[in-house]
Simulated scan of single mutants.
Amino acid sequence: MSEIALGAGPGALILASKSAARRAMLENACVPFAVRVAGVDEAAIKAESGDLDAAALAVRLAEAKAVAVSRDDETAWVLGSDQTLAFENRLISKAPTLETARERLRAMRGKTHHLHSGAALATKGQVVWSGVDTVRMRMRDFSDAFLDAYLEAEGEALLACVGSYRLEGMGSQLFEAVDGDYFTVLGLPLWPVLAELRRTGVLTA
């Protein structure tokens, strides 16, 4: 098992996210951790952060999640993470319905957008590190028929994805080019996170 009990002792790592993709990345990297979802009001944070660009907003959301959970367990290190998507100078949020997802994917096809993955590590209610990585994503000019088949195959699971796609699934067929790190697309800037976990002693190898 790669998961440890909450409060298992000093140095325990908690992932403050319900994302299956982020959990899988840490598990595959053999990082021991537990999961505790942060109960932060993302809509309120976004409303209060109008001065930030999409990349900085991803970091602020990640920091808020990490701090919220770390206040409940002062012995643990807490990893928060979040993604934002910028398209044509606009912030794109998760689609509330599949029809909204259809409209957004139609608008983005044949064009480029930027996906930002922010991460933060906190302990004792304080952020000790945060960072962000950005990937440039270019969608191919796919047909309406493909879009219909894609939405039918993927279903409402897409509503949990900021861009209405999962690159680890059929969503890879939406793209013609991706410039950046694959882990960042999945939702976590994994290399910087692993480096920080080693720096702080959470990982000792």
Rank of each mutant, 00 (worst) to 15 (best):
A56P: 02
R109S: 10
S93C: 13
S93Q: 12
A101W: 08
A122Y: 03
L91Y: 01
H116W: 05
D41A: 07
V69F: 00
F87C: 13
D41S: 05
R104Q: 15
R60E: 04
D72M: 09
E63N: 04
V35I: 15
E48L: 06
K111E: 11
L61G: 07
E88P: 06
R109P: 08
D73Q: 09
E63F: 04
R90K: 13
R109A: 07
D53L: 03
S70P: 04
A101R: 06
E42T: 10
K65W: 05
H113W: 04
L79N: 07
A101P: 00
A107Q: 14
E63I: 05
L115G: 03
R104A: 07
A47I: 04
L61S: 03
T84V: 13
T84A: 09
R71V: 07
T112G: 07
A47K: 12
G80M: 03
E42I: 13
L85S: 06
A76F: 05
A54N: 02
L79H: 01
L121Y: 00
R104W: 11
M108T: 03
T100E: 12
T84E: 04
V67W: 02
S93I: 03
A58I: 00
T100P: 02
R36Y: 00
A58F: 03
S93G: 14
L91P: 08
K94D: 10
V69Q: 02
L61V: 12
A66G: 12
A119Q: 00
A43E: 04
A58M: 05
T75Q: 13
L105G: 01
E63S: 07
H113N: 12
E74V: 14
P96A: 15
V69N: 00
S117F: 00
